[in-house]
Design a binder for these strands. Structure first.
Length: 270
DNA sequence: CGCACCCCCTGCCGGC
DNA sequence: TGCCGGCAGGGGGTGC
């Protein structure tokens, strides 16, 4: 489900109730996530204070007061929600973390592709695979040239490679490439400096607008307070196959790249 | 080594 | 109406 704008929206909606709060109780209902939840997960969390909430790419890092981090990834269908202590649990509520701020933080994930893990802050192996954050540390034009050099893969695949850039997923890769006027299948190394500059601008513009609108609610994405995002209204190409391009009227096309649906306007993108 | 493919899992939707 | 195939915002492993 969530890409960078959705994860950032969730982070912001959590800050007020989570940072500075102490964990008073942990309920684990399902340990089988992307990797099995640690056996001592609840014990490591109970009694800890959350001192900071950070995002890197699509990962959320709940920094604890014992130099450890609760690392959370939402996968395709994961969500975090703040609920009252007396709310009954719902299907796929796998972990509930009660806080002394008076709310319960619930991790729900039907497909269980998500991840929760507690680790020392110097032992976040998952993050070693995550490149620079696309919103807060976007590459300069010069760095872009280095990133695409000798890379023959489609530019869309490069954008979605979390080792290169943290945070871009399937929706926003298509949207950014539309905004930049570049076809998703273009080989990365074939992009000219001017195109890289356009792409760099488009990435920032798309992500900032999406964060401003609270992300994209394609099916059931909500922030931690249950509010949907509205960026899906602005999608120029994603999930619009067969519809007219809002810029030129051409029919939006769908192709499959590395098994993922990819959308573009054959006239606006070259 | 770089890249494409398959798998993990559940839910939903359209077609028959 | 009900079943079935296909598809879904992610990432990791494998094999070419």
């Amino acid at each position: 489900m969530p890409e960078l704008p959705e994860v950032e929206t969730i982070r912001r909606s959590l800050l007020l109730h989570v940072v500075g709060a102490r964990v008073t109780g942990v309920t684990v209902r399902e340990r089988r996530l992307r990797r099995p939840l640690q056996r001592d997960f609840a014990a490591r969390l109970r009694g800890r204070r959350i001192v900071e909430l950070e995002r890197r790419g699509k990962y959320l890092l709940f920094h604890l007061d014992d130099a450890r981090v609760l690392l959370v990834h939402l996968g395709m269908s994961g969500s975090l929600e703040l609920v009252p202590p007396d709310r009954p649990s719902e299907p796929h509520d796998h972990v509930a973390i009660a806080l002394d701020s008076g709310v319960v933080l619930v991790f729900n994930d039907p497909r269980r592709f998500g991840l929760m893990r507690i680790a020392r802050s110097d032992d976040l192996t998952e993050l070693r695979q995550v490149g620079r954050d696309t919103l807060t540390a976007a590459p300069s034009l010069e760095e872009w040239r280095a990133l695409v050099r000798d890379r023959r893969l489609p530019i869309k695949n490069l954008l979605m490679d979390q080792r290169v850039l943290g945070g871009v997923g399937n929706i926003y890769a298509s949207e950014m490439l539309f905004q930049a006027g570049i076809r998703p299948r273009r080989r990365a190394a074939s992009l000219r400096a001017q195109e890289l500059a356009r792409l760099s601008d488009a990435m920032r513009a798309v992500l900032e607008e999406a964060v401003g609108l609270g992300g994209s609610s394609i099916s059931d994405y909500r922030d931690a307070n249950g509010r949907p995002g509205t960026f899906q209204m602005r999608h120029a190409v994603y999930d619009r196959a067969g519809d007219p391009c809002r810029t030129c009227g051409s029919t939006i096309k769908r192709v499959v790249l590395s098994g993922r649906s990819t959308f573009y306007c054959p006239r606006c993108q070259r």
